[in-house]
Amino acid sequence: MSENNGSAIGIQGARKRYKPIVGAPQRDAVQGVDISVASGTIHGLLGPNGAGKTTTIKMLLGLVRPTAGEFRILGEDSTRPAGRRHVGFMPEQPYFPQHLRAGQALKLYAQLGGVPKSEIGPRTSRLMERVGLQGREKSTLDAFSRGMLQRLGIAQALINEPAVVVLDEPASGLDPVGQRDIRNLMLELRDSGVTVLLSSHQLSEVEAVCDDVTIMNAGVVAAEGDLDTLLNAEGRTSIRARGLEGGLPPQVQGLATDVAVSGGVSVFSVADEAVRAVIDAVDDTGGRIVAVMPVRDSLEDYFARLLANTSGEVDVR
């Protein structure tokens, strides 16, 4: 199994143009999208509705024919069936043949995924337990709630022990405990060397588990990188200190911004390069440093700002 420069997933120049009904303008749902997902990481794919996330994933998995672009998983062309044999995919709101029992469904997907016959039973039991559906193997799927189907969707994605897992809104329809379980599962997968591509609207989920993100808007990549870099606001550090009732030391006053005092705790931010000097100055005036941390946007704020800045860049032809 070859890999491509350490990338488990590589998408280059992805483009999908839908042929219009006669007279309507042509529209690129996705254009010029490049995504690289390093092996053994969790990569978030974010974007508002209609951003092109699902179309990109569908092109990657051979569900939609790309107009242009190269799609590779573990170095193999994933638009061909053979290139998808080591992939697990859970679509948004997974559906299953309703007549099947949960155990039968997993057996079917195990067979399709090439799982050896002797391993299907034990693996099915293990996965059912892992997604919290133990004891439900014989239940027919028409009796499953949406959350249970979601859990089974994750189990079917993992049944062939894939090296790459693509999850489209995995926590959708799950209660808070279920969402936490999914987060833990993704972290476990990463720890075991599995690469996860996570498409999600739940920014808290993405922020909690993803190493890197690609943010799409209007069919193009609006931003990409590791979360710490993306969310670190202009190289500033937040400092919390006690014992500064008389105000900030004079040598700090010129450096600090966003100063707030509450309950005897002074909070202010300074440039990263001034942190050492500011801490010394606080110490010298009898103050006590409580916390020093990089100023970091919330992903929600960053996301909203980015979309506001990139709106209007929709390529409609």
Binding site: L61, G62, L63, P81, A82, G83, R84, R85, V87, F89, P91, Q93, P94, Y95, F96, P97, Y109, L112, G113, G114, G153, Q156, N160, V166
Partner: peptide, 17 residues
């Protein structure tokens, strides 16, 4: 329409299969 075919095709099954 119900997207049950997604799980099949994504497993590396050819559409003709």
């Amino acid at each position: 329409e119900r997207r049950t075919v997604y799980n099949v095709v994504a497993k590396g099954v050819s559409r003709w299969e």
